[in-house]
Design a protein around this nucleic acid. Structure first.
Lengths: 213, 213, 213, 213
DNA sequence: TGATAAACGAGACGGTACGTCGTGTCTTTGT
DNA sequence: ACAAAGACACGACGTACCGTCTCGTTTATCA
């Protein structure tokens, strides 16, 4: 039997040296990418355009990222981090006042604000759209952005189960979708308007059910 | 007398004569578009590719549609219509056995089957993604495809309200999102697996609520 | 055995019926072709453009002519005929006052005027250029337009030979080129300015030679 | 001092960097252009065809040339230069044996050979035709190709004037046209056959005149 | 601290697709 | 019945970006 030599398979460009990377260029690329997506939309945002606006060679982008979507995803993650830093670090849990409905309504109202913030809208839509059709990017988008946030709901719902505010046989990972997914769909697909009243209603419906008691 | 203001008057090419349109070409374009999206994915599907595969000049596509997304939307609508005809016309209502939970579960199970059908998946994802980022197309997609189906849920829920299976103060347009949107989001964003058990659970949670009774 | 019916071989469109031809359309096409060539230049003159301007279907052009160049050639010939009619019929001979040099100078001065007339310039250049590169058209252009005019010089030179003003061993068909071709080349290739003085000089040089007597 | 008014400033793409230009591509484009014009004729020669045959992107042509005619003109000039190099540099003067008639006949016979050489014919006709109709190109063609050659005749004729073989009051720039232009016109417009006998006759007629001595 | 190797800006390159225009054929419509 | 109108398959146009590939020029680590 012939043993296959441990071929590196791909031509595998000799991985660039991260330590020499220009921080200046990276930041400029993030800013250019976000600005262009906001101004011209995702499809009209091109790698050449980002490079030109960032005052950077195209190769500098291709050296560190695999695609336009990758650049934008990192830029958007970075934007989130910087926003979190500005707000004194990211929350690692949802509020827990003991009043589950009130806590959920508060958090969803904040999400409504965020979804309507034009600074977030353009890149968030672009990445979501790309993720729908581009599975690896979609999974990364979910894993890095969506799932951590959903996990906070799981934690809060588990806490509610411990204090008897939520039925214990309920699966929190599914339960959270009852109020989160409707909002997500209305935003993504524009199937309806988004408002505090709407999210409040969702929480009420989800917690107390649709059937008569 | 009111003078009509001088209409915007874009270059606006003089609108082709629909009566002379080649039915043969239209069908060929639909088939080519759907096949290419399924085989190569939406981004690699090009107008040139569709034209070549359909044995049609590019101009014949540009004459009747404004973009790749428009072509695909019509092709997909047509696919739905032909599928409906094959199945003896489209349903104009949901089943109504009197058992609301059972009826909803049955319908959602059928939707699960549809979402997992590879023939539908590629164009549906492509159009959904495009709609996220391209507002006019998104609105058309929702109006022509999503909303009519959601309206069937509204009707069924209204019926349940009349028979006392659903609280009368519930807004059916919002209520339906409790079980439809989670499934939609899992499919669109791959935030979780899709199965009959999952949709059954959604119906149960939505109808009876998360909080203890 | 199956006898092959006497196939007409070529698709050979069934030669259109000349008697039913619309005179109105033909004139409109001539005018449109000349106008467009004058206004936009030959390369920007298109069959579609001629048809549109003449208020005629494209097929009406393709039915009667084989190419843009054919249309223009006929239009230009027609223009010449109408100009000749307007001037009381075309000359069938050059002036013959007995003074060969004077007669030639007069005729060449008239040619200079014609070459500098902008109404003639655009189509004449277009057809000449096309003829350089398109042999059949070139030959037709020469046969129908150039050669008849050159023949007039041949006749006049023969007359001069009879009266002893021209050496009898001279070939008139070549001789005429000594003063006609330089003018033609200056006009066609812009190798020099065109003027009465220039053509007068040509006649003098040609008649009396360059070498000392 | 006069201030230069703010130049018209077309969009004017920022002029490519000549030092980075690919010599390989340039040569391939020249060869492809000449080959295609020879094989298919000028009108059927397309920029796409040249690019494909040269194994070059279309943009590489559009980057360095403004039109098909420009490409062909440079290719043809280059062909001439390479032919001259192969022949041990271009002649910078006509032969001068003292016998003017013999010298002119020899040079014109060489020109006849050249005009009948199929390698030169196709591009030379194409460029001449284009120049008839496209004034800037025509002027460039004349300035770079025709005029330098005509100047050699001027020089030779001046020399003949000094040695008394040519009347001193003759303008050499016009005189040369008596034998050069007829040949040019016969070739360009196919108004007659081209042969050594013909050009010999032209020289005789031009030098000694048509009128009796 | 100076050498050297990488990442960098710039942008030319071979390509692919764009959306438009014109060709020459064919079909429909109005008269 | 013919001609206008114009849809059609086709192919080239000139442009925009793609992703790769040199070019010098910084720049930052180690010798």
């Amino acid at each position: 039997m012939v043993t296959q030599p441990a071929k590196p398979a791909q031509p595998a460009r000799p991985a660039p040296d991260t330590s020499r990377r220009s921080e200046r260029s990276r930041r400029a690329i993030y800013e250019a990418a976000l600005a262009l997506v906001a101004e011209a939309g995702y499809p009209k945002t091109t790698i050449e355009g980002i490079a030109a606006r960032a005052g950077v060679g195209k190769q500098t982008i291709y050296r560190w990222w695999g695609s336009k979507a990758d650049v934008l995803l990192e830029a958007f993650l970075d934007l989130g981090e910087r926003a979190a830093e500005a707000a004194g670090h990211a929350p690692d849990s949802l509020p827990d006042t003991g009043d589950l409905a009130a806590d959920l309504k508060a958090v969803l109202r904040a999400t409504v604000d965020e979804l309507l913030d034009p600074r977030f809208e353009a890149p968030a839509r672009a990445l979501s759209a790309e993720g729908v059709v581009n599975e690896p990017l979609g999974r990364e988008f979910v894993a890095k952005l969506l799932e951590p946030r959903l996990q906070l709901y799981v934690d809060r719902l588990r806490s509610a189960q411990r204090t008897g505010r939520l039925r214990t046989e309920i699966d929190p990972r599914i339960a959270l979708e009852l109020f989160v997914s409707p909002l997500a769909q209305r935003w993504l697909q524009r199937t309806g308007p988004i408002s505090y009243a709407y999210t409040d209603t969702l929480v009420d419906y989800a917690l107390y059910g649709l059937a008569p008691r």
